[in-house]
Amino acid sequence: DSCIQFTRHASDVLLNLNRLRSRDILTDVTILVNRQQFRAHKTVLMACSGLFYTIFTDSLKCNLNAISLDPKVDPEGFAIVLEFMYTSRLTLKESLIMAVMNTAIYLQMDHVVDTCHRFIKSSD
């Protein structure tokens, strides 16, 4: 008996999900951050964020097709975290790292928060 593991599978599938997002194929939710709107797939958001997991497993909220985030969330920070969800790459510009970290805290993404903390401490 054998088993073949395609080691690139996870990243190849994630790249295709990001292609679906950029072509707005089967996206099923709009995230409103202040005045900016972001289309996404609920399943990808739930797989990455504790907050979205809680929202979309709540029978009263799982059918919503638009979610407004707290106005304290920075749209640029959210855009970077959303891009991370779909690419595994977190862009850390000096001017935005706090916005990114605060967005990750709000979205309950502890591993990203911890990594941002370590990055900030190491660059101090």
Binding site: T91, H111, T115
Partner: peptide, 22 residues
Amino acid sequence: YEGGVNTIKEMGRSVHEIPRQD
């Protein structure tokens, strides 16, 4: 250097784990 920026490889867990059942 990947894509012109300094890329740091983080080997740890990236996102939460969804429980098998709630």
